[in-house]
Design a protein around this nucleic acid. Sequence first.
RNA 1: GCGUCCGUAGCUCGGCAGGUAGAGCACCCGCCUGAUACGCGGGAGGUCGUUGGUUCGAGCCCAACCGGGCGUACCA
Length: 1051
Amino acid sequence: MKSTYPELPGSLLLVEEETLARWREDDLFRRTLEANADGEPFVFFEGPPTANGRPGLHHIISRTIKDLVCRHRSMEGRSVTRIAGWDTHGLPVEIEAEKKLGISGKPEIEAIGIARFNEVCRESVFTYKEEWENLSERIGYWLEYWRPYVTFHTDYIESVWWVLKELSGSGLIYRGHKSVPYCPRCGTALSSHEVAQGYEDVEDPSLTFVADIVDASGAPDPDGRAFLVWTTTPWTVPSNVGLAVNPGLTYVEVAHDGRRLIVAEALAADIFGEDVEIVARHRGDTLAGLRYRRPLDLVPAPEHVGNAWTVVAEDFVSAEEGTGIVHMAPAFGADDYAAGQRHDLPMLNPLDEAGHFVESIPVVGGMFVKDADPLLVEELRRGGGLFHIGTSVHSYPHCWRCGSPLLYVARDSWFAATSTLKDQLIANNDRISWFPPEVGEKRFGEWLRGNVDWALSRDRYWGTPLPFWVCDEGHLHVVGSLAELSELAGPLPDDFDPHRPFIDEITFACPECGGVMHRTPEVVDVWFDSGAMPYAQWHYPFENVEDFESHFPADFICEGLDQTRGWFYSLLAISTMLGRGPAFLNVVVNDLILDVDGQKMSKSKGNVVNPWDAIGEHGADAVRWYLITSSSPWVPKRYDPAGVREASRKFFDTLFNTYRFFALYARVEEWHASEADPQPAERPFIDRWLLSRLDTVVRAITEAMDGYQITRAYRTLGDFVVEDLSNWYVRRCRPRFWGNTDAADARAAFRTLWDALRTVALLAAPCAPFSSDWMHRALTEESVHLQRYPAHSGASDAELEADMEAARTLVSLGRAAREDVQIRVRQPLRILYAVVPGGRSLHGALLDLVRDELNVKSVEFLESAEDIVRLVARPNFRELGPRFGKRTQVAADAIRGLDQAALAAFRGGAAVEIELDGQRHTLQPGDLDVVQEATGDLVVKEDGSYTAALDPALDDELRAEGMARELVNRIQRLRKDAGLEITDRIELALAGSEAVQGAARTHQVFIAGETLAVSVTVGDEGISDGFEHVRDTDIDGVPARIALRASATVG
RNA sequence: GCGUCCGUAGCUCGGCAGGUAGAGCACCCGCCUGAUACGCGGGAGGUCGUUGGUUCGAGCCCAACCGGGCGUACCA
C-alpha cells in the first residue's frame, strides 16, 4: 500500500531527471523487454542513422513516433524487439575522412593507400555515437543500444554477401554498360535514388549551334542547308556523333544570313521572329539519314565510325523547346546512349575519371567540363557554327553528398534487375499501409511504376565489397559467405577484415575455366546495406534463423519522407528480389521540421534548433507532446518554442496540478485505494460521469492508435485532461475532498480521481514517458511502463454523457446571460428557463449542479412555462433535401412560416401540412425541430438548439444572500492574508451598513460554516480589541468591516 | 514541365460519407482566486486562396488558375 503521495518536483525538467535516474537504477528498459519476452512479437525495424553526423531536431520527431508506437505495443503485452542500427559505410563517411586527411579525390586517396584511408573511415564512423545514444536516452527513446547492428561489421557484411548471392542465383545481378549519373569529384556512379536527393536550380549555358549538311563524300550542301541544334551542355558538343529529329514533326528551312537553317516548324517563329522566310518544308522522317559536318573537330574520330554524324529519327524528340533537333552524344546521356545503340552511333568520351578533358584534346585539354563551356562556345564562334548563346535556369542533379554537378556518363556498373520485378514491387507495396496513404499510392507508387534497374556498384573504398570475382574469360563467381571464400581461396585469418584493400588481394581459380579470378573492385551502394538490415541484423542465415523468421516482415517502421526513395525503397526492393514479399507492413512517414517562419532548417541559414537546447528548455515530454499533438506527422511542421511552452502549460501543468490537488488531500485524509471504496455504480452521478468519459476516451484513443492516428489519439487525451478532468470534475468536486463528513462520498471521490489519474498516466505513457511514469509511481509505486495499456470496458454511458453535456452547455449559456446583465455568479437569481434539444430535461444531482454553477434557485424546462415561450421552426435540411430536391429552400421557407399553433400541434404529435405549388405535404417528425425561445424580460442565450433564459430580477431576499456570499469571499481573503491554516477555526465579527448587518444576521450560519467561524458577532460594538485582524472593505460601494482571530477552540 | 500535399479568425490547427464554419493562443471585457503566479466565462475577429462547374444545398466533390512546400524528370 502507498505510504504517502510524494510532492511533485518543481518542474517538468526535474520530474524527468528524477525519472531518468530511476530508469537507470532499475534498468527499466530491459525489464520491459523481459516482461514481454514471451508475448506475441510486434516487429519494429530501426532505420540506421549515420553516427558521423550529429542528431538534429528532425530526428526527434521520427524517434518519438517510433518510441511511442513501440511503447504502446509493449504495454499491450507484445514482445517488441528494438535493435539499434548504425549506417557506417559510404560516401558521407569517405568525404569526412578526406577532410580529416586534408585530401580530395581518388588519386590522393590511392596515394595515401586504401588501407590507411579506410582506417580513418572506420575511426570516424562513430564520432557522434555517444551523442546519439545520450540524446536517445534523454528523450526517452528506448532502443537496444547494447546490441546494435553495424553495417561495417564482418557478420553484417557476410549477410549482405548472402543476399547478393541469392539475387545472383535468381539471375538478377548483371554487369552493364549504361549511361549513369556520375559524380566526377567522387569518381563514382550514383543510383537513381541518390540522384533524386540532389536536384538544384542552376544557371547553365543555352547554346544553339549550326551543323552544316554535307553529302556522302563530305562536300557541302549546294543549297547551304544546315541544322540548328540546341543544348545546355556545350562540353558535350565535341562528343557529338548524331542529330535526332522526330519522324512525325514538320521541319522547315528558313533563309537566314545566306544559309538555309532547318528547325521544327512549331519553333521557327520563336527562333527567328514572326516574319520568317520559309523556303521549304520536310517531314522529320525524310530528314533521317542526312549527313552533316561535326560542329567541333577536337576529339579524334573513333575507329568504328558507324553512322556517325548522320540524322536519326527518334520519338522522344519534341518541339517544346530548343529547335526540335536534338544533339546526340551517346557517351553522355541515357536517351543518347540508347539511340546510339539503335543507330550504330559511336561513343566519343574524351573525359577522365574526374570529369576533365584528357590532355591530348586541343583547346580544352585538362579542363573540367563545366569550365570548358566558354572556350567551346568561342571555338564554335570561330568556326562559324555559333548561332546563339545565352543562359537558362533549369534544375540539375548534384551529388547528394559533395554537391558536385553530376555528369551522365556511360560506364560499366553492376546492376540489380529490379525493373523485371516491377509488378511484384507494386503488388508488395499494395500490402503496405502507408500513413499517410498518398505517399504510398502516389509518390512511392509512381516511383515504382517508373522503376529502373538498381545501379549497385560504387567505384569507392569504404563500403561492403562486392563479393563478385571475375576471371579473364569473363566468368563470374559470387561468394555468399566467408566459409565459401575460404573454401575457394584457402583459410582466412581469424580477424579477417572483409574490407578493401585486403579482400582485393584474394584470388582463386575459376571453377569453370581454371583461370585466376580477381574481385571486381567496386563496393556496394550504402542503401543496399541498410535495405539488407532485416537479414543482416540477425547475421541471417548464418545464425539466429528463428529470430529472423519471427522478425520479418516489420509490423512497423517510421522515417522521414526523404526515405521514400531511400530506405523505404531499398527494404522493399531487396525483400521483393528475395521473394519474401514486403519487408514492412505499416509505415508512418514524417515530414520536415521547419523553423517558425516555415523555412527549412539549414546550417547556412543559421536557423537550426539544437535538440539539446529544446529539451533543456522545455523538457523531453513537452517536446514530444508538442511534436505529436501540434499536427499530423506527415505535414511539414513549424517548430515554435512558444508552441512547446503552451503545450507544456496546458497539458502537463494541468495534469500536475490535478495530481497535486489529489495528493494534498489524500495525504490529509490518509486515503488509499481499497475495497472500502464504493463500487462505481454506488458512486455519485459525477463520478460515474467521469468514469464513463474515461472509458469513452480509452476507446477513442485505442481506435486512433490502432490506426496509427497518433495525433488524434493524444489530442483526445489532452482535451480530456484539461476539459473534463481538471476544469470540470475537479473543480466541481473540490469540496468533497476535504472535511467531507460523508466518508463514503469522500472515498468515492478519491477513488474516482485516483482511477482517472492512473488511467491518464497509462494512456499518456507512450507519448510522455517521463511524467506519466513519475505520476504512476506516485500513485501506485509501480512503473507505468510495466503496466498493460487500458482497454475500454464498455462502461461508458452515452445517456449520462449527453446529460452532462447538456448541463455544461446550459451552464455556459447561463453565464453568458449573467454577463449580459452584469450580475456576477455570487449573486443568486431566481430562475433559469432552459430548452435542451430532443426534449431532454435534467433531474436530481445534475439539476442541482446546474443550479449551483449558475447560482439560481431553480431551473425549469420550458414545457412548464409556455406562456413565456415562442416556438420557432428550424428546418432540417438533411431530411428535406432528399425529399424536396430543388424545392428544398421553398419547403424550408414554408416550414419557417408555420404559425405558433401549428408548431405546438406538431410538437404534440399532430399531423401538420405545408403547401407547395398547390400540393400538400405532411411533415414528418424529422423534418424540422421545434425550438422554444424565451420572451419577455428574460435574458436569452442560444447555442444551436439549446436555449437558456435567465430571469435577472432581484429582490431583497436575493440581495441579502448575495451580500452574504460577498462577505464570505472577503472573509476568506482576510483569512488567507492573515496566514491561517486551511483548518484553523476563527472568531468572527462583522459590521457595516444596514444591508451588511442584515445579510450577516440572516445568513450567519452559512457564513460561519463557510469560514470555519466558531462564533459570529454582528454590529459595530462587536469589534473589540481582541481581534488581531481587522479590515475595512467595500462591497459594490457598501462599506463593511471584518474582524477575525484564530479561535482557541480546536477544530 | 509533371506529380503530390497545403492554403479556413492576427498565429497554430480541427472540421467525422456534401446539410449552412469551430478550438487553442494572442487581444478586449468580466469573474474566480485555500489544487492551479493558474483557472473560468464572455466578446470581437472569417466572402473557408481565386474563378467557374456539379448539387435543392459546397470548407468538403470536379475543373482551371494563383501562392507555398516537397517530390520527380538526363526534354537535348
